[in-house]
Amino acid sequence: MAPLVESFPASQLTTRVQYVANGQRRKPPVDLKECELMQMIQHRCDLDGPRFDPRSKVVCDPVLRLFRKCSDKLTVETTDWEDIWDGTTPTPKEK
């Protein structure tokens, strides 16, 4: 199985992104605002109606996920970070 990894809230993303996976400091440091903003659209789909009814249809709601692509080696998900913790707006209360 995968090794244990520590989870952290989006408020720490700006500092955590300065470290690579083995714990060493990233060189050169990255600025997430400089990286290209990317998106990925996922869905919440479910069957609308009874299960074995031929008139039932699968209905999907889109879910937008945002990423910052800094290089081919580093992609950071910033769905909960954009416009909240990125420094442009006044920082909200720590979760």
Partner: peptide
């Protein structure tokens, strides 16, 4: 399934709009 993070990347641990916890993916995963 769809890949959302490669080694060293940082990604949401759960679905968007739930816990909001992020993790960094270890090497080789």
């Amino acid at each position: 399934k769809r890949v959302v993070a490669m080694p060293g990347d940082i990604v949401l641990r759960d679905s968007p709009d739930t816990s909001g916890q992020l993790i960094q993916i270890p090497e080789g995963h």
